[in-house]
Write a protein that binds this DNA or RNA. Sequence first.
DNA 1: GCCCAATGGATCGTTACCAGACCATTAGAC
DNA 2: GTCTAATGGTCTGGTAACGATCCATTGGGC
Lengths: 248, 248
Amino acid sequence: MDRAEEPGGPGTAGSQPRPGGKHARGGNVFEHTIAELLRAIRLGKYLVGDKLPAERELAAQIRVSRATLRQALIELQTAGIVTSRRGRYGGTFVTRLPSADTDERIDPGELDDAVRFRLVLETAAARIVAEQDLSPNEVAALTAAETDCRTVFASAEQFRVLDARFHLMIAELTHMPSLIYASASTRDRVNALLDRIPFIHTNVEHSCDQHREIVDAILASDPDRAADLAAQHAEGTEKLLRGFLEQR
Amino acid sequence: MDRAEEPGGPGTAGSQPRPGGKHARGGNVFEHTIAELLRAIRLGKYLVGDKLPAERELAAQIRVSRATLRQALIELQTAGIVTSRRGRYGGTFVTRLPSADTDERIDPGELDDAVRFRLVLETAAARIVAEQDLSPNEVAALTAAETDCRTVFASAEQFRVLDARFHLMIAELTHMPSLIYASASTRDRVNALLDRIPFIHTNVEHSCDQHREIVDAILASDPDRAADLAAQHAEGTEKLLRGFLEQR
DNA sequence: GCCCAATGGATCGTTACCAGACCATTAGAC
DNA sequence: GTCTAATGGTCTGGTAACGATCCATTGGGC
């Protein structure tokens, strides 16, 4: 190796991916904040109808000033994704899911990276969780997340949120902050890709079946089987995405 | 990435880790820049004696303004880690390795997270690389990185740089930017922990032997063995660290 | 010997973002 | 009915970081 740099080398320096903008970080803090909120909604942290945390609290969570957060919220409000009510017991509420950014170009490397990294993370998470002893609460949460997925065969959007919640649930059960964060981040990238391809019922049902099997393997404390099933599951998505998006 | 998030919701929102500071990101851009430079040096991207990229270029790489970069460089210069020379064919040169920040407190969760995530990443990387066909150049680079480790039994600092280079080499051979970035980031966290414990010759020799075995498995295209060896290797470090640092 | 290109060094005006204080509105409690 | 606590909405001053420009130094090429 060496410090040839650029072309190949997304090496060690370079910090987070930060497109281009005025200040540091992701372009600017404002856009980053919007992205963060959208992601949380898309990944099912806040479902439609849910109330977001109070502005002061949410700002602290995203580590951004309230002023900037409000800018972002106003943007989302304009887009019809949230609404705000004043007064005690008021707040900001999710009204609908954000529509997919179908216009963005597809970076060929992006697909490859996102989908392969997802395979790594989810396989590992499934194995790790299967090796643990889960508390009754955790078991309940996991099975609930699994069955929730089966309730919605209607829209791609709704399914995707619940699907994401299921997979993130597994990641969270590892209690590894790094893995949780990486999984959420990667999941969102994969979801963005899934939005580009048709919604296929058969696939959804198959996915749900696989979810069930993964949960079974985890609850049966069978790490190898859990990992293997998770890998198969991820590979299914991978093939689907590559089939639709690669080479064009 | 790292650090989780607030107590309750280690969920999906929460953005990059941003301790506490004025502006956004890692406290402030200035500190982040220093950290980034130190990391690149510690992980062997720039070895002692090497010339850093020109300020204008380096600033662009780190995605930071030249003014901020210079602040950081001046700090490093004051600390004796780099020196600058003006004029054409001048530049900024690495003079010595940064000394470890032994004063920082050890977050008990940090050890656990860093060490477990490292296991996940390096196991996956080894498996993936073993599944690939490597080009002659890649094979050469890998074996070179491995043998380089054996050349230095002198100081902990030097060994750690070469050790990091070896592991990052494997990560880079996956050609997965996300995995490369995560590996570098995690590696640095682990290194910071290793700086707190004594440097044990026997362990280093054992590590080198394991490196050799891992390379053998990769070149033999034996993914399972490569993954298994990588896991054993990482677990060795894990036990060492836990033994010295946990519970006190 | 002169010039030039590449580098580090310095300065300046602008802006994005922040912290904190304050105002406005609301629903429930009393 | 009034009070109160929790919330969204508004405003102000401070500053970190930026982009841009210019200066200073140096070694090699002509």
